[in-house]
């Protein structure tokens, strides 16, 4: 049994020693992840985990990788991508230059899906996709643009449900059980670590996607991050969240208007 106070001590260590601040993460989920890590790495007790974190800086990488949740897929929630295609891209298309930020992009499936939509709308050439995450290991995968071939059938179905009409396999080359996505797509992706808890705004964007990241934050941190997004969006910019995330309980809700049933908002002031 791990007590709340134990978690607090560990989180304080992480902040004091390494500058990672997890104190405002959703506690219920964070605690489960920490218990999971304890059992994965066979620590006999929580104290041992804490000792390892304090004394072995190289263990930090593993801690961050395992405690955050990196699960993602291409064209996850096809209805959402369909709405991006039909309702948002036409607006972006009126701009000479398009900047999109994927905050908490994980291994990049969402970013490549977006690049495909842009290509099909003939907008890719004048777009840049900024892919950021706090975890450097997932960003390495974004850079490579290589995903398991076995998942392509499912992704192709989602792509079609999102209104795609081309042959999905034309976007990648199959090799050794992997699908390597075209350079034409990856060329437009700019990769950087960025911690939503502690880093500030770094550009002005027309569209920010932050999907299934805020669920891991408590209300106060969510509000802080939403303010950061608000400050990073140009006039009439769009903000997209995960299907079960909402601006409803947030401090910025009056500055945004939801487009339709999907979790996409337009900045109105």
């Amino acid at each position: 049994m791990i007590e709340e106070e134990d978690i607090d001590l560990l989180l304080n260590d992480l902040f004091d020693l390494y500058g990672y601040d997890f104190t405002r993460y959703s506690r219920a989920s964070l605690k489960r992840r920490i218990i999971r890590l304890c059992s994965l790495d066979k620590f006999p007790s929580f104290a041992e985990l804490r000792y390892r974190v304090r004394s072995d800086p190289s263990y930090l990488k593993r801690f961050v990788e395992e405690v955050t949740v990196n699960v993602t897929e291409m064209f996850r929630d096809p209805g959402f991508y369909k709405s991006l295609r039909e309702d948002v891209l036409p607006v972006l298309g009126t701009k000479p230059f398009i900047r999109i930020w994927h905050a908490g992009c994980s291994t990049g499936e969402e970013v490549y899906s977006m690049a495909i939509l842009l290509k099909e709308a003939n907008l890719l050439r004048r777009s840049l996709l900024y892919a950021t995450d706090l975890n450097p290991s997932v960003l390495e995968k974004v850079r490579k643009g290589i995903f398991p071939l076995a998942l392509m059938k499912q992704y192709s179905e989602s792509y079609m449900n999102a209104g795609g009409t081309r042959d999905f396999s034309s976007y990648y080359t199959a090799q050794y059980g992997q699908a390597k996505f075209d350079n034409e797509l990856s060329e437009k992706i700019i990769i950087s670590t960025h911690n939503l808890v502690s880093d500030s705004s770094f550009n002005e964007f027309d569209l920010i996607l932050c999907r299934n990241v805020l669920i891991y934050f408590d209300k106060e941190l969510q509000d802080r991050v939403l303010k950061l997004f608000d400050a990073s969006l140009g006039t009439l910019g769009h903000l997209a969240l995960g299907t079960k995330e909402t601006l409803k309980f947030s401090a910025v809700q009056n500055k945004f208007k939801q487009l339709n049933r999907e979790k996409i908002w337009k900045k109105i002031i």
């Binding site: 506690r27 219920a28 989920s29 669920i215």
Partner: peptide, 19 residues
């Protein structure tokens, strides 16, 4: 909701988790 774990926080709010 389908496809998320449902968790309860001490302040009596729900959290979702896609792990």
């Amino acid at each position: 909701p389908a496809d998320y774990h449902l968790l309860i926080e001490h302040d009596h709010t729900f959290s979702l988790d896609y792990s």
